[in-house]
Structures are given as structure tokens and as C-alpha cells.
Nucleic acid binder design. Structure first.
Lengths: 228, 228
DNA sequence: GCAAAAGTGTTGAAGGTACACCCATGT
DNA sequence: ACATGGGTGTACCTTCAACACTTTTGC
């Protein structure tokens, strides 16, 4: 069966991009400008070109449809059930990203009428099996945030421990004890005190911390484990 | 970009099937009977047909090339780097399975000259990027066995605690304390005492246990967690 | 001085690890 | 009776969860 001419499924990529706002956890959707599902909201994504790397394809679609660039993408799962796309057999490699919404203005572009963040608890009907992909993505994020410091992409580069705790509470969907949280995170050793303080708040300003990727890489290499 | 005619990568599946023997952890390989890499050893796998479900494709290839059937497959990762296949752009969805070697005779068939288990520490050169896929698969198994009772597929249906402990020690690559291991596993509540004993051993015969999938499903549903 | 959030320690319970001997069976 | 692996309990230590008050700042 030669590679260049046997009949084969089409291959696409789809991205579940999560952000955080006052409304809680949100996900980036685009409004489709083409059939099928024209006018429906969907995860940003599209077909992989021949000789295109999967991650590059995901980045390209994200850039083309939403204007987002430079995010960290993690491969989630590959969905290939028959019937998931009315156009025929389309296998989709799904990716997850976490972004700080304030740093990334989104704007609709190619093939997309509009692009916007929606709270995960209040979504429109989604095209294809994107509700399923999104459920898997959310589960992955919730599962992973408990043992890997992956939430930091959702915050500004410098943040207070209260903001970080709030992030964890939002993603995990439960409250955490302030003292225990601070003890655990500071003891973990990958937070760097910037020496700076919050400004312009009508109460005692909090210290600002930074995530230290090198320190974390060192800890991980040495078999460190942390659980929230 | 219509689905039915745009140029697209080819899609394949590859399976990393692990088994256990006196030699330790082993993986199932096939000797290729076709170019490219004719005569090389490789993970069993092949092209996904149009309208074929991904998992079905993995099962079909496993059956055709090695005679294995009825195993539990878990999707591992999708590999799509340019240059991983000399025939062109081939994206491969990799799957992992664990099997009890004694229950599954393997035999070469379609497109494969031979099929056999090899100890993971003593492998031949592999075709394509299969050494890389296998490394990822091994990491997944080692990681997962610590918090999910996935090792049971590697043992006969009824097994002694010593066999189970040996399995964990083999997969994890370190020794475990017998008393603590027994305490933890029996307390976990998904092992069922069959009431039977080992037979024909030149020493006190051990109790035989069975993995109880329903009990485990119940525990998992209730948010149970176990760590070795 | 008042409101609002920051920051800080201790105690009790549970769980994990380390460790050594007797038991049942086959030969 | 001896060799071989099966089977069992305890003490210490570490880790986790629960819990309330003082401090600093802006207004």
C-alpha cells in the first residue's frame, strides 16, 4: 500500500485554549464562517497540510483563526470515531493550551466570523464532537493542575499568592485553606519572591511572586512531586 | 478545503504491546517483510483505512501481524514529526497494551516475517522512530502503574501476591517491602481471595487472588486513589 | 479608626516506612 | 529435619488537615 495514493482519512487539529477571568475558567471558541456548521461555535482548528508538523498546524490554525501566538501547546488525544465529521472520515489531533487572557487579544480571521472566550459552564452548542473534546480537555486540565504547576500561564508573570490560590480554586472547583496552600507552594521551591508589592489596592499590598522555570526543571529532574 | 481531495498526510497506527516473562518486561515486535526497513524489527502497526475507527485499525493490524486479539488498548500519543517515515508524511497514532504472554501465542502473518517478544532492555534496532515511541510507551506504563491497577493484564487471571509484587518491582525497577505491599493492596479492596491455593510448589502454597473489576470501578467512581 | 485583605503556627490524625520472625508445605 | 517461600504486627516519623488572630495599608 504505497503512501502516496491509498485512500485515507483526512487529518485535522483542534485546540482547546483555556483562560481565566472574573467569570472563572473560559475557553476560546470561533464562530465558523464555512459549511458545515456555518455560524456554529467550534474549537479553533483545521486540516493538517501535507508535510506539516502537527504542532505547527495547531499553531497555524490558532494564529489564522484567532490571532493567538506563542502559547504552550500540549497534545491531548486523537479523536477518530466514524461520524464525527459530516464531510467524511476526519481524524482530529486535539491540543490544550492555557493562556493569560489579558496578554492575548483575540480577533477573528480566516474562516472564522468571530472569536471569543466563553465560560466553560455556559457554552453555546458546539460544532462536530467539540463538546466531547472539550470535556476531555477540561478533565485533563483539572487532573494535571493537581500535580504539575501548569496554572501559571493563566496569570500575569508576577502574581500574588491569593491570585494563585484563586486560580487553583477555580480550576479544581473547591476551596483551599490559605495557610496550608501558602506553606505548600512556598515550600515547593519554584516560586521566586520578586521583592515587589501589589500597588493601588485599598488594603495591605501583597508580595508578588514569579514562577521560576529553571528551579522547577531542577526539582522535576530530581524526582520531586507535589500535590495540591 | 474539501475533505475528499485535498493533499493530506497518511495516517497509521502502531502498537506497543508489553508482556512479562522470567526475563522481565518485554515488548512485542514484528520483523518487517516489506520495504522500507525490510527485515528490520518494528512495532506492529500499519495504515488506517478510510472510514476505519482508529482503535479498530490498531486491533486489525495487531491481529493481522501478530495473531493477538482481545487485548485492552489505550491510546498513547500521536507522532507526526516530518521525516519520521521515508515514504513521506505519515502521522502515527500509537497505542499501548499489556498482555499476559502465556495466554497469547503470537505468530507472524500479513506483512510480517516474524513476531516475538523482546526484553525492553535488550532490543534490536527498530524501524522508523519506533525506539522513540517505545520510550514514550514505557514511560507511560511506568508512570501509570503507580496509581492505577493496570498491571493485572500481565498476570494470569488468578495470581499470588508475590507474583503481583514481582510485577510491580519489574515495571517500577525497584524493590518493594513485602509487608507494606500486601497491606496496601489488600486494603485497597479490589483483590478478591479465590479461596484457592497455589499447587505443585515445593513450599507452603500461596493464596490465589483475582482482580475484581467491579469493585475497582466502584472505588474509582467514589474518588478512590492508590499509590504504590 | 475602620475596612479589607495579607500574613503567620500549632496540634491531632492518618498514613507511610522500616524492620524480623514464625508457619506451612514438599522433599 | 531441612529448605523454601508464605504470611503476619509494631513503632516511629512524616505529612496533611483543621483552625483564628495580628499586621499593614488605603480611605
Amino acid at each position: 500500500m504505497p503512501t502516496y495514493d491509498h485512500p485515507r482519512p483526512a487529518l485535522s487539529v483542534d485546540c482547546a485554549v483555556f483562560g481565566l477571568s472574573e467569570r472563572g475558567l473560559e475557553v476560546l471558541l470561533v464562530q465558523r464562517d464555512l459549511a458545515p456548521f456555518e455560524g456554529s461555535w467550534a474549537l479553533p482548528g483545521g486540516f493538517v497540510r501535507e508535510d506539516e508538523d502537527l504542532e505547527e498546524a495547531a499553531r497555524r490554525e490558532l494564529r489564522e483563526e484567532t490571532g493567538l501566538e506563542g502559547v504552550f501547546l500540549e497534545q491531548l488525544y486523537t479523536f477518530g470515531e466514524r461520524g464525527r465529521d459530516p464531510r467524511g472520515h476526519v481524524v482530529s489531533v486535539a491540543w490544550v493550551a492555557l493562556v493569560n487572557v489579558r496578554d492575548h487579544a483575540v480577533s477573528a480571521a480566516t474562516d472564522a466570523r468571530d472569536a471569543a472566550f466563553f465560560p466553560v459552564g455556559d457554552l453555546p452548542e458546539l460544532a462536530f464532537d467539540h463538546d466531547h473534546i472539550l470535556a476531555v480537555a477540561e478533565e485533563r486540565v483539572r487532573g494535571k493542575v493537581r500535580y504539575r504547576p501548569i496554572g501559571f500561564e493563566l496569570l500575569p508573570p508576577e502574581f500574588t499568592l491569593a491570585q494563585l490560590q484563586h486560580l487553583y480554586e477555580t480550576v479544581l472547583g473547591r476551596e483551599l485553606d490559605k495557610r496550608n496552600f501558602r506553606k505548600k507552594l512556598l515550600a515547593a521551591g519554584f516560586l521566586e519572591d520578586t521583592g515587589e508589592r501589589e500597588e493601588g489596592v485599598p488594603h495591605r499590598p501583597a508580595r508578588l511572586y514569579r514562577f521560576d522555570p529553571e528551579a522547577y526543571a531542577r526539582l522535576e529532574r530530581d524526582g520531586f512531586e507535589m500535590w495540591i
